[in-house]
Nucleic acid binder design. Structure first.
Lengths: 180, 180
DNA sequence: CGCAACTATGTCAGTTCCGACATAGTTGGA
DNA sequence: TCCAACTATGTCGGAACTGACATAGTTGCG
């Protein structure tokens, strides 16, 4: 059974062949906005994908004790990825530490909470500005079978998410400011 | 070090003393909207909280091989929870399988994708209706130091999230419908 | 030319967590 | 009265994942 991380790796390789190291950096940005992993886990999963025949690599001379391995999808990998995309996601439960804190917020000092939510809001606003710059740079939305459609779709979602969270932070701040 | 689940457990116990079993059902609804755990994990974490002196229990006669244990927060536990609330959340990376699928959606059949996102949209709309009913039943937002403020705050966030996701699904459906 | 920063692969111990299994009292309906 | 559903605690194996450690070639700057 391929893990979700396996599919995350394959969805990057579907666009371009990459080394494990490059996959790890792609896991920071832009994929890191909705899926993350450390290189140690990426290497482990690449071994599984390799054993399952979903990816292969070309060895190249390069840094490290084992040279360089440029991974690419096999036709089987591409087919497995295509099938996975349209299967309903298995409700990975959302775990949101800030919402959990809000649930217990009635116990805490309103002034400290105010500082916390103002800090969070500043982060959301910075990300909104960043994403809007990306969006402007990306231009019009292409056809749905073009690789960059995935970038537009995820960026749209990320922007909507940040705006929703910013609005929630403002609601919290408004409530808390009345108390201090 | 208390895990985040430990604080989730304590945030439930801060309102009312409960058994491990009751904590597990609370983890389905309403806490399950933003934090989940199985009873096996809850029992394990209760042991740690017990050892740390953050919770205690009263043994009562009841079902099971070991009777019934009603857990409650100790003053130390309450203080630890209060301190934790205003600490910035350690960016638990968001892992969103549906967004990952959207990232790779250019590979898939638009008709199947359309079905997937229509199904997701229906789920969001159902939850919006459900949350709106809850919100109407809960009435006005109380003072921020009242336990039910936590319920209002998390419900507000959940409702905003569902609306944002529904809007994203509609955007995807609009794009995909033009292709089929 | 040396050295720091970067590229690159891989191992390992430990944590968190789930799913399956085990056990057994309580409650309510046919 | 029986039995199913529910309440209730707990163990265990294994998967997923992180952070630290180990190794070593490549690049570019002073």
């Amino acid at each position: 059974m391929t893990s979700t991380l396996g599919f995350a790796i394959m969805s990057v390789l579907a666009r371009q062949a990459r080394t494990g190291y490059e996959l790890a950096t792609a896991m920071r940005r832009p994929l890191g906005y909705f899926w993350t992993a450390r290189h140690s886990q990426i290497h482990a999963d690449l071994q599984k994908l390799l054993a399952a025949g979903l990816v292969r690599f070309e060895a190249e001379h390069g840094p490290g004790p084992s040279g360089k391995k440029v991974y690419h999808l096999t036709p089987d990998g591409r087919a497995a990825l295509r099938d996975w995309v349209t299967e309903p996601p298995q409700q990975r439960p959302e775990r949101d530490e800030l919402v959990l804190k809000a649930y217990a917020s009635w116990l805490a000092d309103p002034a400290e909470l105010l500082a916390l939510f103002r800090e969070q809001l500043a982060g959301h606003e910075a990300r909104i500005a960043e994403y809007e710059t990306h969006q402007a740079a990306m231009g019009d939305v292409p056809a749905v079978d073009h690789p960059s459609f995935g970038n537009h779709a995820t960026l749209w979602c990320g922007l909507g998410y940040e705006r929703h969270r910013a609005a929630w932070c403002r609601w919290m701040i408004e409530r808390l400011a009345g108390e201090v």
